[in-house]
Amino acid sequence: MLERLGVESVLIRNLNDWQQPFDGLILPGGESTAMMRVMKDEALLEPVREAIKDGLPVFGTCAGMILLDDKHLGCMDISVKRNAYGRQLGSFQKTHNIKGIGDVPMVFIRAPYIERYGNGVEVLSVLDGHVVAAKQGKMLACSFHPELTEDTSIHRYWLSFINVKH
């Protein structure tokens, strides 16, 4: 996805990878319990938390959104309900509006949603009464997986948080 937008990307699997220079961080989809485990084991939890609190632009999708909430990294003032739409049979796809971006395809896979948010959080999209995309400072989070579609608009929106020319 980033490649298509002409943006260079690196994979961060351990503390060593974390030492290289980068301008923004994407916390992708996956299983949040497994991702937390790896971040703890690789001693990445604190450095990631500190960097985000110091203003590193971050984008969390699905499991990545869970990691940003008040029960995990504690970076965004949101509470996220896991597996909020049930098991795989509850997974679905829909085209829906995001404030400031427009209609985008949304792929929900055993997805979470935001059940509580604080004053500093700007809600960007509500689907059937549930918050599925939100922003707080340079932190962007969504329930669905833009990385699984051809649509690049959300990634482009997030890249605008980063103060370098692309």
Binding site: G30, E31, A63, S91, Q93
Partner: peptide, 16 residues
């Protein structure tokens, strides 16, 4: 859609 959603769940398991 369903096939795509099901392939996508497997994408989320990748690296696991």
């Amino acid at each position: 859609d369903r096939t795509q959603l099901n392939r996508n769940l497997a994408q989320m398991l990748k690296g696991g």
